[in-house]
Design a protein around this nucleic acid. Structure first.
Lengths: 205, 205
DNA sequence: AAGAAAAGTTGAACCAATTCTAAAATTGAG
DNA sequence: CTCAATTTTAGAATTGGTTCAACTTTTCTT
């Protein structure tokens, strides 16, 4: 059943994403006109709108790929975390943050975040919320894993702590992408400092 | 020096804000056309753009008034907090959340938040970041106040804990405005649950 | 293999935010 | 009071995302 139409469709999808990725990086989100993306993808404007509901969804597709990579990279840490609560958290958060600017510029992050709050019910809006939830679950899973390993007190509300840590990290990341001059090491240090009280509180005596 | 021009300017500002507030609530942010705002304010389109850089800044002016009210309401709690760490935090956060939908609809909040991350350097983007910082400082101030009162251990890093609590609350509020069916009591309960571990950890023995 | 139906493509037209420029109003100096 | 400088206004023109009706291409049926 892999007819011509299927293959053409997949090919067009790829061409649109490739063209958009290149133009978003070159010209920024606003600067990348739909007309230009269409031209570079060798497709008409109408076709783009047949594949994506709006400009935001194109960026959304790119962001989703990136976040999924980050989620995958995180699995390793949850499976075999450093034998110390503070280091375990710092390692996982480090993976998230260090990967974050591989493919996406800060400007692309800003736009993506803006769109996801502006249009929470659009395809991308929903996808973004789902990805955030996955990340939260991964942090919670790490806490639970550390409980199993006896590194975190077993009477701690793991999911609640996971949410707290994720939400704080996410907010810090938002502020980070809002300031072009902000740097990763400072961001990580600030988050470590914020988590310190919590780490001390949940570590088993 | 309060010439005619001064008075007219203030009057036009007010008329624009009044018209925009009404139309944003009636028709939503996107639905409120600049042309309609201009007509209702009895001002031309060009004049609106002379007073505000873009549509977002008009919303920004409205949001800023609201947040300032919240900040004021919060001062009372910091000055004389409930004699219990959990209740003190819950009271302050409660004020923030309960006030939040007085003048602004969830849709207006979504737009405002989106604009502030999309254009962090626009007048409103900077104002919004500044307001967030004020709120963070207020929560930190509450923690410090509770330390003075002997209700929070004095070896705790107050500002760090304040940031953690604000960032978590803010992220929860963002998710709250993203879902029209979300309700305030559930939001508050979720935040209380997340703060519980922290409250236990910082309370003086 | 031909014709009909389904699926997809195209780009010109539409709409609303923003920009631009000429005209009007206000001010202050003489 | 008058007039030139300055500020402000008006609204037509521009811009770029999005829609839509006509056209093509692919697939299905016999």
């Amino acid at each position: 059943m892999s007819g011509l139409r299927e293959r053409q469709k997949a090919d067009r999808h790829r061409r649109i994403i490739d063209a958009a990725t290149a133009l978003f990086r070159e010209a920024g989100y606003e600067g990348a006109k739909i007309e230009a993306i269409a031209a570079q993808a060798e497709v008409s404007i109408g076709t783009i709108y047949n594949y994506y509901q709006n400009k935001g969804d194109i960026l959304g597709a790119i962001v989703s790929m990136e976040v999924n990579e980050v989620l995958n990279a995180g699995r390793g840490v949850v499976a075999g975390p450093p034998a110390n609560v503070g280091d375990a958290l710092d390692t996982l958060i480090g993976i998230y943050i260090e990967h974050s600017l591989n493919y996406l510029s800060k400007e692309m992050w800003r736009q993506a975040m803006a769109i996801s709050t502006q249009l929470p019910d659009s395809p991308f809006g929903q996808a973004y919320t789902a990805l955030d939830r996955e990340l939260t679950k991964q942090i919670s899973a790490l806490i639970v894993r550390l409980q199993e390993l006896g590194l975190v007190r077993s009477d701690i509300d793991g999911p609640a702590v996971g949410e707290l840590i994720f939400n704080n990290m996410n907010m810090m990341f938002i502020e980070f992408v809002k300031r072009d001059e902000a740097r990763i090491p400072e961001l990580r240090a600030a988050i470590r400092r914020q988590n310190r009280v919590l780490v001390a509180a949940i570590g088993s005596a």
